[in-house]
Design a protein around this nucleic acid. Sequence first.
RNA 1: GGGGUGGUAGUUCAGUUGGUUAGAACAUCGGCCUGUCACGUCGAAGGUCGCGGGUUCGAGUCCCGUCCACCCCGCCA
Length: 596
Amino acid sequence: MAEFIDGFLRSHNCGQLTASQIGEQVTLVGWVQDHRSLGGGHLFVVLRDRYGVTQLKFDGEALPEVFATAEKLRSEWVIGVRGAVIDRGSNANADLPTGGIEVEVHELKIFNRSATPPFVIRDEIDAAENLRLTYRYLDLRRPVLASNIIRRSRVVSTVRRVLESHDFLDLETPMMTRSTPEGARDYLVPSRVHPGQFYALPQSPQLFKQLYMVSGFDRYYQIVRCFRDEDLRADRQPEFTQIDIEASFIDTETLFKICEELVTSVFAEVVGKKLSAPFPRLSYTEAMSRYGVDAPDTRYELFLNELSAAVAGCEFKVFTEALAAGGVVKALVVPGGAGFSRKDITLLEDIAKAYGAKGLAWTRVTDNGFDAGIAKYIEASSGAAIREVLGCASGDLLLFGADALNVVNAALGNVRKEVAAKLGLIDPNAVNLVWVTEFPMFEWNAEAQRWHAMHHPFTSPRAQDMPLLSENPGAVLAQAYDLVLNGVELGGGSIRIHDTEVQSQVFQTLGIGPEEAEEKFGFLLKALQFGAPPHGGLAFGLDRFVMLLCGAPSLRDVIAFPKTNRATDLMTAAPSSVAEAQLKELYLKTVGLEEK
RNA sequence: GGGGUGGUAGUUCAGUUGGUUAGAACAUCGGCCUGUCACGUCGAAGGUCGCGGGUUCGAGUCCCGUCCACCCCGCCA
């Protein structure tokens, strides 16, 4: 029979008692972590709650009845105990915060028993992910995971405090809203009242927060769930949480300052780490050219080098053909990398290929020129020029990319990360934040043969680039920015368009004609006509932020109830089929299932 | 949509060249044990080798398909 708490309220938690409570009578409640019986006289139980663990001692001679009950205890039973805090003296356990004391129990209450858990609940054990997800509530008992969730709560709390100190209001936005073109695939919600019509769950509250600005709530924030129906990754969940921020009458500099305070406060208060602000800045162009990616990891000095001019006259066909096709040749110098084995290089080549490169040309630098790899093709014709540009030294390994610019950047940019890891260039304690600015406004989508908004369609072009909007969209730079932490995009935002005319022009460039714009975004265009203030903002990915603060390898480690790679919840078995009647009510019918 | 890793006892894993009754540790159950702290110790029980097909005298092992979990590319304004 399970017992209710009935006045058996705790006086302390399991992480709290120290030598200063010795002699006090206390009441503790929690889960049985461990029970160690030493026979007739002695029995130790480790009691766990979210605050820590405390050792309980049962004495068989003094209290045989309590002892007999205690002997029946099993892992994960929920119990309450009353007893005296006693000094462990020479038996103290230095590994535990509460290891100096133990509670000598004279009253034991069993609130509930537990089935044998499917895996041992302990930090060190690593059960299969699917088991952990099926029994998520048990996995969350593990202190390592529980502390991530607790840390997440602290982050949220700090964020609220900082933003509210700057007059930001916590304002809500609808979860059931309108599907809009552009961006990710929407999660749809069928309408019962309007047969055949659908709401969409928000990919972000973008338009609503802008409309709040039009309303005059000049500083908004929200810690808000967002939904995107795209394939998952270790750092991507279909529902995730944004720290969403928007402000009116504000410039980028002011916004950056607030964000820097937010980020440094979180690091200081949650993990006790002091960061210096302002954070360095890097233009998108510079990031792409030196790091190959738009979210550069600036913890190590390893850069991509432009070699197109230096190898223009070389005899290596891969290079000359790439250049002839309008591509580029870039190189990565791996200091002391001459010791890399062929196997190491093949591994790097596999990374390059994963990002679309056809291969990864390489050679070693020696005192007598290049050796091995493509040495014989390049030494005579352009060896000297390459060495001059790269400033490489004997013992280095050179890795080359020759292809279209975006392919070379992606390939070498990601090879760079692996090289840094392999050379041990990454300081695990470093926290390098960098603002990436001056993103292009548009990206050409070759497949769809049209321009795409790189950030989103509500981002404002730079004032000086407005004239280019119609004649040369590719050259327009946006007032957009990302905040990057150790190579991970932590957040991003922009100054928005607050002018109907400009907004219409941007839609036009994106191939959204006046009629479609009116149909899909009419409410926004209309709102912009009624005195929309200049405004801008950004959003941080809360989950990723917490993941980085916890040093966790996956978002699943900082989300209490996450989804699997295939977007299912193993605990509740969602998604699921629904009753035919439910579908009928919504005027829905499944089709094409047999093809699946 | 594509590439990769894994799936064997409740759990974590081992399982040789295809060959007798599929093993270990932990967990579980029972006994012993008065200072353990991942207690120790003795014993017991515990298997749809993910699932389906195929090859073979014989399949955990080889082949084909499929499901699940994870990592990556595409996708994710």
